[in-house]
Design a protein around this nucleic acid. Sequence first.
DNA 1: GCATGCTTGATGAGATAGGG
DNA 2: CCCTATCTCATCAAGCATGC
Length: 797
Amino acid sequence: MRNHTLNLFKVNNLSDLNFSYKLVEFNLPYLEGQEDRFNKQLQKISQQVALLSGGPAALIKRENRYWIAIPADKIFEETSINVVPYNIRVSLLPDVYQVNASSIDKNNVDVIYKFLDFEIRKQLSRNLRIWKLNSSQFFLKQPIVSRTDSIIDIYEGFSYKLVLLHGSTFYICIDLSTKYVDRHVLSYYVNTGNVQTIGNSFKGKRFLYLNGDNWYATELEGFGEDIQSHEFNNNGDSISVYNYILNNARTRKEDIKRVLKPSDLTILYKYPGRTMEPHSGACSLAKMLYSTQDKEVQSLHRYSIKDPNIRFEAIGKYIREYFQNIRYGNIALKISLNPLVEKVPNFSMPELKYNNDRTLKAGHYSNGANTTLREFAGERKHLLIENGVINKSMFDEQFLIVPDSMDRKLVEAFKKNAEHQIKALAPAFTSFTVIRYPVRANQAATFQIQEIEHILRRQNALNGFALFVLPDMTSESPRSARSFHDCLKNQFYPDLKVQCASAYKINSFFRSFPNAEAQNMFEYRVPEDKKPKFKSYLTNLVLEHLIVNRKWPYALSKNLHYDIYIGIDVHDRYAGFTFFFKNGENIFFFPEQVPLKNRSQRSEKLKANLLNKVIYEKLKMFIPKFCPTPNGIVIIRDGRSFGEENKALSSVISSLATDGLVDLSQIKYSVIDLHKQSAVPLRIASHTNGFNKLENPIAGAFKKINETEAFLYNTGFPFQIRGSAKPLHLTQIVGNTEFPKVIEDIFCQSILAFSAPDRSNSLPITIKLIDTLLEPLSGAIEGVEEEEEFEDSLGNY
DNA sequence: GCATGCTTGATGAGATAGGG
DNA sequence: CCCTATCTCATCAAGCATGC
């Protein structure tokens, strides 16, 4: 194992700090089955106490009862808190609990975490050299020296999170972050003379407002008069914007006087994304914020992608400059200047099983390997091209649906290429039936799709699989092209399974040549110089089409530790389920329509009875066929599970036991939450002997932060990525499986990169497939409604 | 066509302030 | 004193550039 550097900086003098606390008592009745409500009520009480006492409040459970801990030096009056339907009395108990570093245990560690985190955040917010975007992101007030002639200043900063390792040691975890801000203040562009003509173009944009020492993000609502004339109501008194700003400038008064002119225009702003009574401010204190889709930022985006050396160097700098003067009570926190360095374990690359009994094994030839780790990604693709897909089942009916604007000979040429490529990978494939559809410019997507449906119905093509060539929509807005695409997939789903391609793209590869055999005839061919690009385009398109056809390209040589994995994800109206058995030769996908989210619950929450129904039905059918008496069932939930998955899984297992399909005394189970993006911005870099001291960790490296939580790096070596690898965050929410075995199983699943075998893939195939086969449907509903509204408004004229 | 890293924007939910 | 608009906090999907 190699040494690795982690972006974790230890709090060294925890033992010097005094975390003594008092308890707050309350009695909240728990109604059976009302767990959701109970948790919300608990949270509300704890926040209320934090407010009353003016400091941190930590919710803790002792002797099967809940309490709230607040620092021993805080006090508040006994009071009632309204948590519908109760009024809960909260009172501060007199006893003081002494806590020191040696007495940290799992009963009081959350108290220490909350207290410490509260202080660190508070003191970062008070640091005059940085500004706070939200509770975890901080940026320097000095932009980094620009490397371009751009009108944009780049503000670098960091996101912060306090991390508890293995329940006893605290670390500061920070990562880099960037914001793009206009170099000039708004008054450089807009003044009382031109506000009528160009003012509107700035409305709705986001601005960084430099209000004295306090900088924050705002959204521009509109403009007022000049700041000397413009008055607003301040606690009952009318005051001009100019006077208000100078009265409140405090230490920054001289600086502000220099930029603030009485003739500056007043801006009316609100906080981004909110509806509120606008505040008044000065144009000369606002600088426009840019987002990643702004043209001006596009060329700067690459500067924020940083390799591990540069990233870790900057992280160390922020620790030195902003984390060495933080106090807890009367004592300075001693935060290590050096990052945590330790041996990080990794799983080895699993062996893959291909068609024709071929395998791919990375490592030393002496161990039976047939490739080096370095060559793994390339070979993974190469073996697939050579041997074809492992799934040899028959194909359903196949359609090639093309716009009638596409030349017949071009369609013929493309069809020949596509069929040849598919047959090379899956010999069971025969041919496409070509269907042409008319394209009507300037017509709503819904209307066009209806017309296409009539045509497909006449040709009996509403079932099966289609490669659908989208018309050339380069002249139209990207939104309407996207809307067409989404409508299409939504309209025919799930009977007709559609993979899309673009006529524009296909056209760009082909050229017409004189026919060699017949004079005055033409044919379409790909010229030599475009062949490599076309080959790569076609391979990827065909691989996707095979995935849509459920023809999995390869599998694992060995079974996973646990026999059954179930992936679950939700996109708007559909929940997707994948069932993965043993080594992945048998994977099944099912969409299930779910009720649209309502106001009171989280959008992605699934109900236990739906989960129970789907999972039980399918497992009852599959277990006898693919894995009799399984040793374990694991649910992987993309995003957050809400206890429903757990309820469903235990009821499914007991039903299956009644049916005699599983052995209750043997079977293991668990629910895993998988986050592509974690609140903990943990990074890892491997030490090398080369010129660059740090590089991305090997794929399969993992860092457990406690018994049920880990970070898994799936995108490192041998895969090539720009920047620094971002891990998956895995949490075993419930269950009795061995967590490290589950992590390894998830790593193996991520090596089944079906859609791009030569690239890295961070998601396990159980989740990735749901995204691929479900994703285009989400958003389609909204798109349709927008189009219809648009049509209606046209009709009124 | 695919993949990645990265930032912004949207969203939900609890809590609060202030008007009627 | 209740209701509603506003605010804060936290999380996740969308959308970007870029490379194969």
